[in-house]
Amino acid sequence: MKAIGFKKSLPIAEQESFIEFELDKPVPGDRDLLVRIKAISVNPVDFKVRQNSAKENVLAEPKIIGWDAAGIVESVGKSVTLFKPGDEVYYAGDLTRPGSNAEYQLVDERIVGRKPLKLNDAEAAAMPLTTLTAWEVLFDRFRIDDRDKGKSVLVLGGAGGVGSIAIQLAKKIAGLHVIATASRPETEEWCRQMGADVVVNHHHLIEDLGKAGYKEIDFIIDLVDINSYWDTVVQLIKPQGHIASITGSAAPVALNKLKNKSVTFSWELMYTRSMYQTDDMIEQHNILNKVADLLDNGTIVHTLNTTFNGFTVDNLKEAHRLQESGKSIGKTVIVF
């Protein structure tokens, strides 16, 4: 099978930042699906892993990355019960296993969902990673329920992949009042299309929120850089509120600043369930199926914005360039 990977962490402009090669088609393990991939999505995690996986040494074998795909089940492991050959699926995969930048991929059935019927392959491939991340923030970390309807949520980085679906889930499913940050006319408009009630400029966030009538926010989702915003979110978060971040931090986060307000802080990593084979790993299967229903009935919409046709080294490089620029809006997909 054809695959695209890398043996050395190189700038994307370098000729061998990605290389095409051939591999044997993998054989499913006990609970694995072998999926013939039809489309993949490229996310910021892709270029971060590419930039950091082989900085010092050249890898003996090329590393295959990619964590979003839509495709068709070709064969299944002996203990698989959720899917059968011929089923159309979508999923975000497992950070610890070979990724989706290949014609075929093995993935545990417990983190796979049925492909939404009304979405094409590209639209479906755009959704899993960002949707799982946003869903887990809202319903696993914040534990939002009916008592929270009407409360406020601030989405830092509203026009990105996670922000685009977080706005929709927060508005349509959680019933929250959604404020999103954006700084360009096109990103402001995108956030409004996704359903944001208010869009503010992150360059003067507190000032803009004050003009819009907000002194405190119940929930804050950081999708940009938690330490860059830390003092601002500490000021904005409501007493007994909740902050969640997906961005990580090389420096310690000053959690002591939250003490007087009794604020909760959570990290979110979508790969936790698959990485640690948690007891509730199958929840990602359940979430993806719920979201497929929401996409099929029109409650939420896909977030695909940029499509490259053809699974080639050049297209993968272009998709990575776009992600590295920080200017992408919504999701970027490559159709095989």
Rank of each mutant, 00 (worst) to 15 (best):
D231M: 10
A212F: 07
S262I: 04
N260F: 11
H242S: 12
W190N: 01
L295S: 02
D279Y: 12
Y276T: 13
V200R: 00
Q240M: 15
W230L: 13
G241V: 06
D296I: 04
D197L: 04
D225Y: 13
M194F: 04
L205K: 04
D208S: 10
K259M: 13
Y276K: 12
L223S: 02
K211A: 14
Y214H: 12
H202L: 04
A251Y: 07
N286C: 06
D218Y: 05
I237S: 02
D296F: 08
H203Y: 15
V199F: 01
S249H: 09
T181I: 05
N297T: 02
P252M: 06
M194G: 01
Y271K: 02
W190E: 00
W230E: 05
V253W: 02
K257Y: 05
C191G: 06
L205I: 12
I282G: 00
L294Y: 14
N256W: 10
N227C: 06
I217T: 01
R273N: 07
F219V: 04
H242F: 14
A196S: 03
Q240F: 14
E186D: 15
R184P: 04
E186S: 12
G248T: 15
V234P: 03
A182R: 01
D280Y: 15
I246T: 11
S266R: 09
P239G: 08
D231A: 09
L209Q: 03
I217R: 01
V200A: 04
L236I: 05
G241I: 00
Y271N: 02
M275Q: 10
I221H: 01
Y271L: 04
L294F: 13
H203A: 09
Y276Q: 13
L258E: 10
T247E: 08
A182M: 06
W267Y: 15
R273G: 00
M270Q: 06
R273Y: 06
V200F: 07
I217K: 00
V291S: 01
W230C: 08
I206R: 14
I237R: 04
C191M: 07
T181P: 01
D208K: 08
K261P: 08
V224Q: 07
E186M: 12
D296V: 11
N201F: 08
W230I: 08
V199H: 00
P252N: 09
H285S: 07
